[in-house]
Design a protein around this nucleic acid. Structure first.
Length: 657
RNA sequence: GCUAGCGUAGCUCAAUCGGCAGAGCAGCUGAUUUGUAAUCAGCAGGUUGUGGGUUCAAGUCCCUCCGCUAGCUCCA
């Protein structure tokens, strides 16, 4: 006797062992049709898997309205895609085919290259399979038989996986779909006909088991949704992301450029982008001064010896520009490194004189230009570059001060993000793994620091609940990262606060301060950067605002334009008045139609247009046009000016289209 | 770095089987003097990323290098 208890409290009783599908059938035909899988004791199982032999079973039937269902269905899509590929290409070996956010992929080892030109016929084959609606059958085999089966099928990658990856399992499950058999934990939807609207998206390279030394596989990406509207929606969102691409907008709006002749990954800020940056810089300097930081300037290169002491050389040699060897060129002289980070310079400032506990915390800040030689395939617009500017600071403090300083860093980052309207973010605390020996510093120090960091985060008003990732810390100390969601939901890792027990240590720079006991002590160092890097941050901002910056950041804030050149003299007076008030203003006095001038200003995403014609000239006013709201009507110049100044002072962020 | 794809005017793109490199926008010149998202006309703009090869003939086919894109690997 088995009692099957449903989430709504109802139950059914059976004298035999049943499958979820049978249960669903007993409740109603429609439900049976909609049921894709089931959850028993928190575990997902397939529709045709018999329920466990227990007196009472809590069963939840899963239909396409449940969140788990999408994942399940996408995984089945991956199988169907693999089946289609096996039919169309010879000698294909299967690797893995998991689901991912928004879709699925499958990795293939194939002598024949698969390209996106093959997508139509793969999709057609998939449609054929879906139409045939054959069931997914679960087959469980003992290990040895499973290995033999994969060997027979010529699937040596799968053989390897069973032998190594699944070494501890006595039985291994397979799913059969017509002629297609694949090693898989499951579950799957009951049959191919249950798959929703899908589309293959791209083909890319990947490595077997993620190891660059192993076989290179071909990865086919696809997306799948239960309903066509959802697929269309998703594709629209992808298009939207493309429309906001900072590389495209950066060129259109003349914000920045990257010139292969100057070098890959080296960003040049054009006048308009430089204006955005300058505004951000002055904002950040204001905050630094308000919060007791002391800005410094240090050079972008340093002697190799400096980095030998810091441990950055030769440890990170592959990701650095190689040393400049003066001796090799001139017969004498030192070797210099383009600095990959600012800390050593700041440390030497700290060490330039004896420090007392009364000097601490010492907060040295700098917008420091650093260079790292990222792999060519990694470069991307402003977000992954070879030269970038960190809004960096290093805090030297006593252990007792760590919590307060850490709190101050979080507050500042929080404030900066809020000011820019980036309210949707999470905080990731990366802690050490005590069982590993890669970390410097004592376990007690780490315990204390991590407990303090966590407590500070939790006590911080307005800060989202941090989530802790063990073993993700840098070897030199735990850290907190801010992962920001932009307005279309993409994640960006930006600001970071990191504790450092390594550089101050005796093995490195041997930092000291004289304590109240008149004895030397080792300070703790905190690295922090609310933006991360100006390049990445502005790249993200471009996409977040789709190029339409808030007024205080806009490269051009007002465009004065005349209805006819007859009004040029008056308009130039207005323009001069705005410029003298500190606004970034330009005038459009071309003999074009108003519509054309408005269109141009609109395309350049200029926040305000002041239109001037006879009416305005006669009344001493301007017709204000808002980039988003359109015509706001005519008002006196003074009033319009005050309105804009208020918006700038408040750093208002308005919702963008 | 790896795999795949791509590289034509400042930008977006066209050029059939290998057969005279072309358009729109932007730019310049002229006309137009305009009331809230594109006035008209003309002109100019190119060693088809680089270097080599095949061919009577190469934007097109082959090789090299450079760069870009997607993904992988990486990100102190």
């Amino acid at each position: 006797m088995v009692k099957v208890i449903l989430p709504d409290g109802n139950s059914l009783e059976y004298t035999r062992r049943v499958t979820p599908l049978e249960v669903a059938g007993d409740i109603g035909k429609r439900l049976a049709k909609a049921t894709l899988a089931a959850e028993v004791d928190g575990q997902l199982i397939g529709c045709d898997t018999v329920l466990p032999a227990e007196d009472e079973v809590r069963l939840r039937l899963i239909t396409d309205r449940d969140p788990e269902a999408l994942d399940l269905m996408r995984h089945s899509c991956a199988h169907i895609m693999a089946r289609a590929v096996m039919r169309l290409f010879d000698g294909v070996q299967l690797a893995f085919g998991p689901t991912i956010e928004n879709g699925f992929y499958y990795d293939f080892l194939s002598e024949q290259p698969i390209s996106d030109e093959d997508f139509p016929r793969i999709e057609a084959e998939m449609r054929k399979i879906i139409k045939a609606d054959e069931p997914f059958e679960r087959v469980v085999l003992p290990r040895e038989e499973a290995i033999a089966l994969c060997r027979d099928l010529g699937q040596t990658l799968k053989v390897e996986h069973i032998e190594q990856g699944l070494a501890d399992q006595e039985t291994v499950s397979f799913y059969r779909q017509g002629e297609f058999v694949d090693l898989c934990r499951g579950p799957h939807v009951p049959s191919a006909g249950k798959l929703g609207a899908l589309k293959l998206l791209s083909v890319a390279g990947a490595y077997w088991k993620g190891d660059a030394q192993r076989e290179q596989l071909q990865r086919l990406y696809g997306t799948a949704w239960f309903r066509q509207e959802e697929l269309d929606d998703y594709l629209r969102k992808v298009e939207e992301a493309k429309r906001r691409d900072h590389r495209v907008l950066g060129r259109q709006l003349e914000l920045f450029m990257i010139d292969p002749k100057v070098g890959s990954g080296l960003v040049m800020w054009l006048p308009k982008g430089a204006t955005v940056r300058r505004e951000l810089e002055s904002f950040i300097y204001g905050e630094l001064l308000r919060r007791g930081y002391q800005p410094v300037y240090t050079p972008a290169i340093g002697r190799v010896e400096l980095y030998e002491t810091s441990g950055h050389y030769p440890y990170y040699k592959e990701s650095q520009f190689p040393p400049i060897d003066m001796a090799a060129h001139w017969g004498e002289g030192d070797k210099y490194l383009l600095r990959p980070m600012n800390c050593p310079h700041h440390i030497r400032i700290y060490q330039s004189k004896p420090r007392s506990y009364r000097d601490l915390p010492l907060r040295l800040a700098e917008l420091g230009l650093v260079h790292r030689y990222e792999q060519s395939g990694e470069l991307s617009g402003m977000t992954r570059v070879r030269g970038f500017t960190q809004d960096d600071a290093h805090i030297f403090c006593t252990e007792d001060q760590v919590a307060d300083e850490f709190r101050g860093c979080l507050e500042m980052t929080q404030f900066v993000l809020k000011t820019l309207g980036l309210e949707n973010y999470r905080v990731r605390l990366s802690f050490g793994d005590r069982s590993s020996d890669k970390y410097v510093g004592s376990a007690e120090t780490w315990d204390r620091a991590e407990a303090a960091l966590e407590q500070v985060c939790r006590e911080m008003p307005g800060l989202p609940e941090p989530h802790i990732e063990l073993g993700e810390a840098a070897f030199y100390g735990p850290k907190a990262d801010f992962v920001v969601n932009d307005c279309i939901g993409r994640e960006w890792q930006l600001g970071t606060v990191q504790l450092d027990y390594n550089l101050p240590s005796r093995q490195r720079f041997a930092l000291e301060y004289i304590g109240p006991d008149n004895q030397p002590h080792e300070p703790v160092m905190i690295h922090r950067a609310p933006f991360g890097s100006l390049e990445r941050f502005v790249g993200m901002l471009i996409e977040h605002f789709a190029g339409a910056f808030p007024l205080w950041l806009a490269p051009e804030q007002v465009r004065v334009l005349v209805v006819s050149q007859k009004f040029e003299e008056y308009a130039r007076q207005v323009e001069r008045r705005l410029a003298e008030a500190g606004l970034r203003v330009t005038g459009d006095y071309r003999p074009e139609k108003v519509g054309a001038k408005i269109r141009d200003a609109q395309m350049e995403l200029i926040p305000y247009m002041f239109v001037i014609g006879g009416r305005e000239q006669d009344t001493g006013g301007v017709a204000v046009r808002d980039r988003l709201e359109g015509d706001l009507g005519t008002m006196p110049v003074g009033e319009a000016l005050e309105k804009l100044q208020a918006e700038i002072a408040a750093k208002t962020v308005r919702k963008t289209a």
